[in-house]
Design a protein around this nucleic acid. Sequence first.
DNA 1: TTGACAACATACCGAGTAGTATGTTGAACT
DNA 2: AGTTCAACATACTACTCGGTATGTTGTCAA
Lengths: 223, 223
Amino acid sequence: MAARPHLAEREEEARAVGGMSVADGSRAAILDAAAACFMAKGYAASSIDDVARSLGSTKGRIYHHYPSKGDLFADVFRAGMEMNYAAIEPVRDIAGPAAALWRRMATVHTRQMIVTRPYQRVVWEGVELYLRGATTPEQREEFARLMQYRNDYGAIFRQVIVAAREAGDMRFDDPRVTEQLMFVSLNSPLFWYTPRPGESEHDVEVIVAQVVDFTARGLGIGA
Amino acid sequence: MAARPHLAEREEEARAVGGMSVADGSRAAILDAAAACFMAKGYAASSIDDVARSLGSTKGRIYHHYPSKGDLFADVFRAGMEMNYAAIEPVRDIAGPAAALWRRMATVHTRQMIVTRPYQRVVWEGVELYLRGATTPEQREEFARLMQYRNDYGAIFRQVIVAAREAGDMRFDDPRVTEQLMFVSLNSPLFWYTPRPGESEHDVEVIVAQVVDFTARGLGIGA
DNA sequence: TTGACAACATACCGAGTAGTATGTTGAACT
DNA sequence: AGTTCAACATACTACTCGGTATGTTGTCAA
């Protein structure tokens, strides 16, 4: 698998921890707070002071690490997409038919939508902001890279379902339209799932299974 | 079919035209502009001045008809939902199995998402705003009524798919989860469809058919 | 003809917000 | 002990936006 050079690593801000490069601790806390805030109120309605308040800090801390609100948002976007790549990477190499590969990837992806929901909602809103052109020219460049990053992720799934169709295991028409339908279905917990108190991991898996089953049938698996 | 008393008609603002009660002309223009603006930039990022500018007017005109930005938004929400009810009403009375009824309703609904897209995106965002609690206490009452209005609409579809399942024509687990998946799929053109120049009605119907087919398979039709 | 009123436009205010400029502090380095 | 600097906090500014108060105009009834 080719390396993904779409986003330059920020070496000076990352350090090796447990074999995985994670962001600086303080920045990670800012990212979490920003993701939660953007999810709760949306980008436009979230103020930098809101994010800082939820951290028990002030604006100074955030503007020390990020040059603007848009850059902070873009970094949450990037972090969310990196989580997605990291999640599906381990299940991409298992041998077997494309349909089975798709089911593994789809299950991991859907679970990811639930587990890292704040980040994934930012990813969703980021796509909408880009498509609406609600960005400054400079930020548009970075957003374009993030969109490319996200489109590559989508292309991975598209290749798998096209392969499954060629193998006779799926049936659908336009791959572009079908990719949209597939992702909207798999991502849908972003909009209607809310964590219940005392919810077990098994409960989540039941939901994930229903989402994946619905989408699999939609793709014409075993039809 | 029982009357829907959820929203009080505003008799003084509606007049009979062609057998259908439509809003006042000036208000309708404001609604159209507001829907387009809210779709293009989102609720929070849209200013009343934006809406007025797109009308070639000023704020005064809008505040003469609506007491607040939230009320304008709510009225777009209401208008969008009324369009949906009006669209599916004619196809609800045709006799036949529930699965066939569902397909007619789903087709009309999906086409509606494309044709009245600005209003339907406001409906979508309105649901999110309500769920996030991003409303003032007074507006929360009106939003709650609109949500009830929308949930009733969803219940119509849910009853149909449950009936189809009892008839052995559909297969799915939790009706609540399935209703969410169904609507996310049917509504998905809101997010990825963009009208092409020179696009015919037939092109739209091809897309609608793919969306409905995907969703029908997801519901386990004919499986 | 003239009041009255609907349908706006104009002018203005206060609150909130992105971004900046500057102060503070603890720790590392020499 | 003194210097430096990252990592913040504080104070401030310019600007936008929701909402209001008020002015203007065309129309229509009496």
